[in-house]
Amino acid sequence: MSRHLTPNLVLGAVLVAFVVGVAALSLVWTPHDHAAMNIRARFAPASDIHWLGTDQLGRDVVSQLMVAARNSMTVALIAVLMGGSIGVAFGLLASALGGWVEDLIMRVADIGFAFPALLFAIMLSAVFGPSLWVAVFAIAFINIPVFARVTRGAANVIWTRDYVAAARAAGQGRFAISRDHILPNVAAPVIVQATIEFAIAILAEAALSYLGLGAQPPSPSWGRMLSEAQTLMFMAPQLAIYPGLCIMAAVLGFSLLGDALRDITDPRLTRSRQA
């Protein structure tokens, strides 16, 4: 395995471990109560007490960033799991049945693609009011067609393999083949895709929260911290830097990891239909 220890993998794994670790740590410990305000101590510079200073309401920036990391990871995890499992199921189904079923599923996936996540989230939050769940559902929703396509593309390749033909000749049904032969063989590209989608989900959550459609106060979010920092850029530019760096580190970590995993698994499998 040592030949796979590329810088991508190492850096990706380290960043992911760091972000996930910090997010997990925030469950039990943060340097300060992330919601505790002290308006007289606003915009404090970095110090021994506040390692990265305080924000416009005098809250500790490090604690805010830590809790935001947890929120961001949670949203991404739920959204990718939800969208991924539905998408994979549809992709397998489309590939197994072919014909008009495949066509229908892919057409519906097209409609899914046709709604940019942002428009979907805007419509959802207009109807239900903005919340973290709107962000989760919007991101999960856009993941369904992505996974359906990846799965179906990879599965279509497997269906042409000799051992699948052999299984069919042996009288095994389409669903049984999907379960026994196709699913294990599409697992690699799906996991790779999931890692990459995780990165995209973090970005999407940040964008939605930036536009006010995601996490609601006082629950901190990197995106919302940035939108709040935007008017303060002249006064406290550091507040516009830290959350951006956090997003970058998290997204970079997951996409490097995804990349490295893609290199480890057979790259030819993921080539045919990247989403």
Binding site: A35, M37, I39, L57, G129, P130, S131, Q216, P217, P218
Partner: peptide
Amino acid sequence: EIIQAQLGAAGMNVRIENV
């Protein structure tokens, strides 16, 4: 956000819904 914290100090939970 500030009202939320102030009512919190008086023992109430406030959920903010931005609409």
